[in-house]
């Protein structure tokens, strides 16, 4: 049944790489943004919140197109990156960026909910006991939001595995370079007689996503026990 071609294997491997890359890049930034949203009293907080959540409500295609404008050869960031010889569009890096941006709101939301459950007085208590801001972050805030960070990373990882719209615009659908599982399935459905192949990849996709959820559940339980 699992009759996968080498190209399918490549797509699976690429999907995993993209999901890992996107999650790893987004997590530190997501933690920082969640911290600001949960604890700070900045005047522009509502604006920041809206901006962070925008990819959640925009069609991924729109996000992909905006990223294409930003990272394209004439784009604001694209020109800067061209100086150091980095190309984002139609590369693996592009797929990672697209996934990271689209999954970011889910990550931030999960971490923020966890952080809002932390008793701010115990953070103040840590400061008065001689812990600096960084010390408090590492010994109190981070351990207490560990489960939420893990939950956010899982959501982000799973979302990245399924990312399609933004990826196809920013990174294209190049087999072996940017063709992840959803893009490969899309191509099969457009090929006469590709139904079985598409179904195979669908099953792989289900198994992968379900595996991620199970792993995360197990990790959460371990964290809770400690």
């Amino acid at each position: 049944m699992f009759d996968l071609t080498p190209q399918d294997m490549q797509a699976i491997w690429l999907s995993i790489k993209v999901a890992f890359g996107a999650t790893l890049i987004a997590t530190p930034l997501g933690f920082a943004v969640a911290y600001v949203l949960a604890f700070s009293r900045l005047p522009g907080k509502a604006l920041l919140e809206g901006l962070v959540n925008l990819p959640l409500v925009l069609p991924p295609v729109v996000v992909g197109y905006l990223l294409l404008l930003l990272f394209g050869r004439a784009g604001y960031l694209g020109r800067v990156l061209a100086f150091v010889d980095i190309r984002i569009i139609f590369t693996l890096a592009g797929a990672v960026v697209a996934s990271a941006v689209v999954g970011f709101p889910l990550l931030v939301r999960a971490i923020r909910i966890g952080m809002e459950g932390i008793d701010t007085n115990s953070l103040q208590a840590a400061r008065t006991l001689g812990a600096s801001w960084w010390d408090t972050l590492l010994t109190i805030t981070l351990p207490l939001s560990g489960r939420a960070v893990l939950a956010g990373m899982t959501m982000m990882f799973a979302r990245s595995l399924g990312e399609f719209g933004a990826t196809i615009i920013l990174a294209g659908n190049i087999p072996g370079v940017t063709q992840t599982i959803p893009l490969a399935i899309y191509e099969y459905t457009n090929t006469p007689g590709g139904d079985t192949m598409a179904m195979n990849l669908c099953l792989v996709s289900i198994v992968l996503s379900f595996g991620v959820l199970l792993l995360s559940e197990a990790a959460t339980r371990t964290l809770r026990r400690n």
């Binding site: 008793d119 007085n121 115990s122 103040q124 208590a125 840590a126 400061r127 008065t128 006991l129 001689g130 812990a131 600096s132 801001w133 010390d135 109190i140 351990p143 207490l144």
Partner: peptide, 20 residues
Amino acid sequence: VAPEKRRIGVVFQHAHLFPH
């Protein structure tokens, strides 16, 4: 001076212990 450098201890109304 930052709170951690003041060497002033605080006992709050509720204990606010570190739950972990």
